[in-house]
Write a protein that binds this DNA or RNA. Structure first.
Lengths: 195, 195
DNA sequence: GTGGTGATATATCGGTTCGATATATCCAGA
DNA sequence: TCTGGATATATCGAACCGATATATCACCAC
């Protein structure tokens, strides 16, 4: 899942893993910190698929190899491995970002929103509408759920459900705001003064 | 992580996995559906540790075993395996529920809240306060984050951060409400008319 | 300089979880 | 009777998390 944001960050500037993690943390907020166990495998996958490539890393100080022994298994330690996005990676980034099909849950939507500036306004609107429909669906499920179980659940669980509903309504209101801004941008530039 | 809610549900009524999943879904809301790949391993773990036990299941219609071949590897299919909580399980449930130490993130807190009725009022308050402090901390991180990165991030990412902050503030307000209700219950019963 | 401390940086491990899929049974109704 | 859909258990591979190991560097005290 980190494929998209990693490509998006490397698009702007080549970086090594550690910095990538810091930037991701800053982008996604304090609730969503990326773990090493997800970041480094993601970098491996992207490297293997050719979407990113390692830049020349400063040769490790020790362990210069002789002619007999092959390259030793890389040990950890502080040596920067800077990654750069490739043209294939740029293409992958775009296709990942543009697919309106899947990726409608909070995490995927958040990741896409962080790179909305790379999208056409109409694609942005399509993604926002899709997200809105998804949230509305969840809202209906909340209501059905509460309706069906109201008598059987205790007050704490009920409060949980109501808070979940309220939070979802807030999310929808936020999406609506984004949609409104998007539309005003659209008509404001492409079709000024509404004629 | 499913240990707590599984025990909590089985405490009320013995059930098989499928029904357990339905009940969990109803309890936790439409955003949090439990996957088979997490539920069945959790049931295995709990069974192995002695916290729950399988009740006599109706013998599978086919495949009655002869004296020579051992029990065949259980194949899937529709046969109910009803689980019942054991005294050890009851104890585990209580200790999992009462530990105020870890489990301060949204998921763990949610799971505990769903079984708050089994806790003493003062333990409930302690958990609520802890959750509140955690959210407040996150809020501070949001602010620091925005302060440090405001110039470098685009408007979509900024909106994301602001929405995250607002949502966190809403969560805090909700917790405050729960705390208020808890206190009023406390003083209302244990110390009536505030003397 | 030399030693210690904390931030930087990469890497891996075991356990857990997810998503999809396979298998099998029951039941309602065409 | 046949068939589709709900019920029910189970497993697989990939991905992910949290913790930990390893190593280097910058800095400051002494």
């Amino acid at each position: 899942m980190l494929e998209l944001p990693v490509l998006g960050l490397l698009k702007e500037k080549s970086m090594h893993g550690y910095e990538l993690r810091k930037q991701l943390g800053a982008m996604l907020g304090p609730f969503w910190q990326v773990s090493w166990g997800s970041l480094y495998p993601a970098l491996r996958r992207l490297t293997k698929s050719g979407a990113i490539e390692k830049l020349a890393e400063p040769t490790p100080p020790r362990a210069r190899r002789t002619r007999t022994n092959a390259a030793p298994p890389r040990s950890p330690g502080r040596r920067k491995t800077v990654y750069r996005i490739t043209p294939e990676g740029e293409q992958l980034f775009t296709s990942l970002l543009e697919e309106t099909a899947a990726a409608v849950d909070a995490d995927h939507f958040t990741l896409k929103l962080a790179f909305f500036r790379y999208l056409q306004p109409e694609t942005r609107l399509a993604l926002l509408e899709r997200r809105r429909a998804y949230l509305q669906e969840k809202l209906a499920q909340f209501k059905a759920n509460i309706r069906d179980y109201r008598e059987r659940i205790d007050s704490y669980t009920l409060s949980l459900q109501n808070h979940g509903m309220a939070a979802t309504e807030n999310d929808i209101a936020w999406i609506d705001e984004l949609i409104r801004e998007e539309r005003s941008l659209e008509t404001g530039s492409a079709n000024p003064s509404g004629i």
